[in-house]
Amino acid sequence: MLVIRRDLVEAMVAHARRDHPDEACGQIAGPEGSDRPERFVPMLNAERSPTFYRFDATEQLKVHREMERNDEVPVVVYHSHTATEPYPSRTDISYAQEPDAHYVLIGTSDPEEHELRSYRIVDGVVTEEPVQVVESYMFAHTGVDDTPDGS
């Protein structure tokens, strides 16, 4: 299951809407081992295409270095499908190389209602997972360090 803050969901959807009809892509970094998405990192789609995306390689290295310095990993890797269902395409599956990441797809083919789905993709096998949107991780059961401080 992906547990994710509402503001991060809204940021992904806004990015997908902004770049529509081209595909938008990005990642959400979180502390290594936490499985908790925290830092929104929209990425350039080097392909600028309605049917394909690719992280810009130079930007990807820069972001990778930042994440290493912060002991972060890409907890979420997201992109949009602007004309088709938000289900991983054959190309998405062949490139999926982060077995610990949640692959989030945002469908923007309907101008009013977006569709957001999350998947694990491991060794070419796609498994959809539920998404729980929370206001804050304080009250969600995402880890032992989430107990609210004080009383």
């Binding site: 995306y53 690719r54 990807q60 991983p88 490139y95």
Partner: peptide, 10 residues
């Protein structure tokens, strides 16, 4: 030398 997985798809 840094090796990163390409992040791409359709």
């Amino acid at each position: 030398v840094t090796i990163l997985p390409a992040v791409a798809g359709g």
